[in-house]
Design a protein around this nucleic acid. Sequence first.
DNA 1: ATAGATGCAAAGAGTTTGCATAGGT
DNA 2: ACCTATGCAAACTCTTTGCATCTAT
Lengths: 122, 122
Amino acid sequence: MERRTPQRDAVRGVVEGARRPMSAAEIHEAAAGALAGIGIATVYRTLKAMLDAGEIVLVSLPGDTPRYESAALGHHHHFHCRACGMVFEVAGCPPGLARLAPRGFAVDGHEVILYGRCRGCA
Amino acid sequence: MERRTPQRDAVRGVVEGARRPMSAAEIHEAAAGALAGIGIATVYRTLKAMLDAGEIVLVSLPGDTPRYESAALGHHHHFHCRACGMVFEVAGCPPGLARLAPRGFAVDGHEVILYGRCRGCA
DNA sequence: ATAGATGCAAAGAGTTTGCATAGGT
DNA sequence: ACCTATGCAAACTCTTTGCATCTAT
């Protein structure tokens, strides 16, 4: 991320402005709205650089393409609605997570995904 | 899964015998040990059928290809070592998971992944 | 005998990379 | 001016599909 370019501004603008994790294709499409002609390869390269820089976080849901979201949202988890497929943010963590690991294992992070039906689909 | 074939027996044998979630390529390689010449397409078709039948479960770790494991292992979670990449099973669940969801959301399942260093790498 | 299952190879989807050019500093 | 970043297209990886053949029932 050495240089500031319109392409990187566009990608960053999309991801930082999103309230849900977006796929590379969604980010590309949205970024193209702000900057016509931006290439998908540039989107991938920018996302990779932002991941390495810790600006964004990779969110991977089983059976789905990877998604990305702003690291500025802070630590949180996700709720995946089985009916409509939407992904919602979930605040807070369950307690005692690190204690689940076997003896001698050092836990330094975790991911939690809840499944079910969102308010609209329940 | 209408017919019982040597190929399906081989794939089932590998997955049921594994103590960790395996990728399609790993399953193919292991199955080829028991049944030389088995095709990768057959492995994918068999895994899909077993998933649909509920015999196996899909385990997806961020930034990794999908893995599969026996549903007979029962409900458990995973520990992903950042150093060696190995995946270990974790027994038990954190309490109060369903309470994390927003009001009106119905939680019927969850996934927990722990990250860190395994005993050997810590 | 018959319909489902297999293996191969081609097709698809998603992601990465090589290279000449554009453009930020 | 220099050197990184871009866009395009090709390459790659993983997974699915079409089709002729084989095989479990």
